[in-house]
């Protein structure tokens, strides 16, 4: 049914239809749109090397001093340590939860599966301010002071949908008969998981760890509400944005963070692709 009737003809026909030389409006639009997308992201690094405190053209000379000054700021370093801690713990917890849930969704048919799948995606669509304010109220009511712990609890919540969807695609193409073979050859449930399942989905796990780490590392609103007097890097940056004199340092710090995020996520993407590739190869 879905095969076109005139299949042998169609490529030639559509090529002929596209042939007349005319300005490729869509391509031009696409390129313009890319410039729009990249403008703000490339601007921070560009001006972080500018030898002046005002972000405007014409640019002054080239300098690295804004980067050099970053190392001298103790509060910044502390915020960096806070962010790394929160990110690492968030990544571990969210990925573990996501690993088991994704495994259940892909492998088993059970009552409430769809409900559960919908539920874990919910954090993606609740406005951040509502998550942040309601968690603050909850934690205070439970006697939990705002701290890195509460930030981690919040970040696991927002990172979980990412972990689940990455792990789901890692399990998706996973060939079940490999596990059955391991069972038949006498491996225990845990042994099979450790020696067969885990190695095959390992690239997916790495991807999930990296992505959830980055989600946490870049998250601002929750950390703003829940961090108390232990600021994470985005909260620190927020406090610096108000001071024009600090602007060049903020640009330098921002550029480093941009670079780190993009680097981490490109690595994650690499592992994610490898996971689908290895899974389909084994299938």
């Amino acid at each position: 049914m879905s095969e076109p009737l005139n299949k042998p003809l169609s490529p030639a026909v559509s090529k002929a239809r596209r042939k007349p030389i005319r300005f490729p409006w869509l391509l031009a639009y696409a390129v313009g749109y890319l410039i729009f997308l990249y403008l703000p992201v490339l601007l921070l690094p560009l001006f972080s090397f500018n030898d002046g405190t005002i972000v405007a053209f014409p640019m002054k000379g080239f300098t690295l001093k804004w980067y050099a000054q970053l190392g001298e700021q103790d509060t910044l370093l502390q915020a960096m340590i806070n962010s790394l801690t929160v990110g690492a713990v968030t990544a571990l917890v969210a990925t573990s939860l996501g690993l088991f849930a994704a495994r259940a969704y892909v492998r088993y048919r059970f009552k409430g599966r769809e409900l559960s799948e919908g539920l874990v995606m919910l954090p993606l669509v609740i406005p951040g301010i509502i998550v942040a304010s309601s968690m603050l109220v909850l934690f205070i009511s439970l006697g939990l002071k705002p701290s890195l712990t509460t930030v981690i609890l919040g970040h696991v919540f927002v990172a979980l949908p990412f972990a689940v969807s990455i792990m789901k695609s890692a399990f998706d193409d996973f060939d079940q008969s490999l596990e059955e073979a391991a069972f038949d050859l006498g491996e225990s449930v845990i042994g099979t998981f450790r020696r067969v399942t885990l190695p095959i989905v390992a690239p997916g796990i790495v991807a999930s760890l990296l992505v959830t780490f980055t989600v946490s590392f870049d998250e601002f609103v929750l950390a703003f509400f829940l961090s108390g007097n232990q600021p994470t890097l985005p909260v620190y940056i927020w406090s610096q944005i108000r001071f024009p004199a600090k602007l060049p340092n903020t640009l330098a710090l921002g550029s480093l963070l941009l670079l780190a995020s993009v680097q981490l996520l490109l690595t994650a993407e690499y592992f994610r692709r490898r996971s689908t590739k290895s899974a389909s190869k084994s299938a």
């Binding site: 703000p40 992201v41 921070l44 980055t214 590392f217 870049d218 601002f220 985005p234 940056i237 927020w238 944005i241 903020t250 921002g254 963070l257 941009l258 995020s261 993009v262 981490l264 996520l265 490109l266």
Partner: peptide
């Protein structure tokens, strides 16, 4: 894949 806060800034 970069920080939302920084892009808005």
């Amino acid at each position: 894949w970069s920080s939302y806060l920084l892009r808005v800034f």
